[in-house]
């Protein structure tokens, strides 16, 4: 490890958030899961919630998410994180319960759980990482894959005649009266990463104030399974994913605006 020469007057501007564990992650180089983890950890630190937050990890690349945060966590069955979070929150309503889910987990096998958790207006927060592909299992087509997108299970591109169209989760959940705060952000550049952090802070404040279900969808990259360099993958989000999944606030309850 190299040492650096610091002047006595130097001030620390940025360091690793305390809520993030110091271990290395299993994510591929350039994967934006790491950015999403960091934003969540920073938001939890800023609100002083580390001691009373329980993270529910999904099945997918982020299956070990409970290991990467310095706070309590548990592992749910595939897609069932909102159901497990519902149970935890109802038994321990003073805790902050956050689910961290990918698109293969939340929008496919876990579709019923997330829809009904939102419909019931459960007071939990969901971080939804959407990278339009199944990452952990080797890059198969996901419910969120774009029309024409080449994956290992659609080598000639997603054929909409046979496999349909991508599911837009934020739009879908925003139609439910139980949902309080549903927004979509992207992690493809600095400005959007900062906006995503702000949205995660708001989502946690919604839960702190007992206002109901909150979800932040984050458009993310999967350089390995998209077959792109990390920086090209960020451009791919901007060029292909944002037109299909427009960024914006899909449901912001009136009382959230006063937070």
């Amino acid at each position: 490890m190299t040492t650096i020469a610091l002047n006595e007057t130097s001030t620390l501007v940025y360091q690793r958030p305390h809520s993030l564990a110091t271990c290395n992650t299993n994510y591929c180089p350039g994967c934006t899961h790491g950015i999403a983890h960091r934003l969540l950890a920073e938001a939890i630190d800023e609100l002083g919630l580390q001691e009373r937050t329980i993270l529910v990890a999904p099945v997918g690349c982020s299956v070990f998410a409970y290991k990467y945060f310095q706070m309590d966590g548990c592992e749910a069955a595939h897609g069932r994180a909102p159901a497990m979070a519902t149970g935890i929150k109802r038994v321990q309503p003073e805790k902050m319960v956050v689910t961290y889910q990918g698109d293969g987990d939340l929008a496919s096998i876990g579709m019923a759980e997330i829809v009904h958790a939102a419909a019931r207006g459960e007071n939990i927060t969901t971080i939804f990482v959407n990278n339009a592909i199944y990452g952990m299992t080797g890059g198969q087509m996901a419910p969120t894959s774009l029309p024409g997108q080449k994956t290992t299970s659609s080598p000639f591109g997603r054929d909409t005649q046979m496999t349909g169209y991508p599911v837009r989760m934020s739009e879908l959940l925003s139609t439910l009266d139980g949902a309080t705060y549903i927004v979509r952000r992207s992690l493809h550049d600095i400005a959007n990463i900062r906006k995503a952090k702000k949205a995660i802070l708001t989502a946690l404040k919604v839960q702190m104030n007992g206002m109901g279900f909150s979800m932040v969808e984050l458009l993310s990259s999967c350089p390995t399974n998209w077959g792109l360099e990390p920086s090209e993958a960020l451009h791919w989000i901007e060029k292909n994913m944002i037109p299909a999944f427009p960024l914006g606030d899909y449901k912001v309850h009136e009382e959230v605006k006063s937070l």
Binding site: T9, T11, L12, V13, Y27, G34, D189, I190
Partner: peptide
């Protein structure tokens, strides 16, 4: 300025600044 720390997916950058 710290933009490298904002984009770093592995949170391996610490930033210092002179007054």
């Amino acid at each position: 300025c710290g933009v490298c720390a904002v984009i770093c997916p592995d949170v391996c950058i610490t930033v210092y600044r002179e007054p």
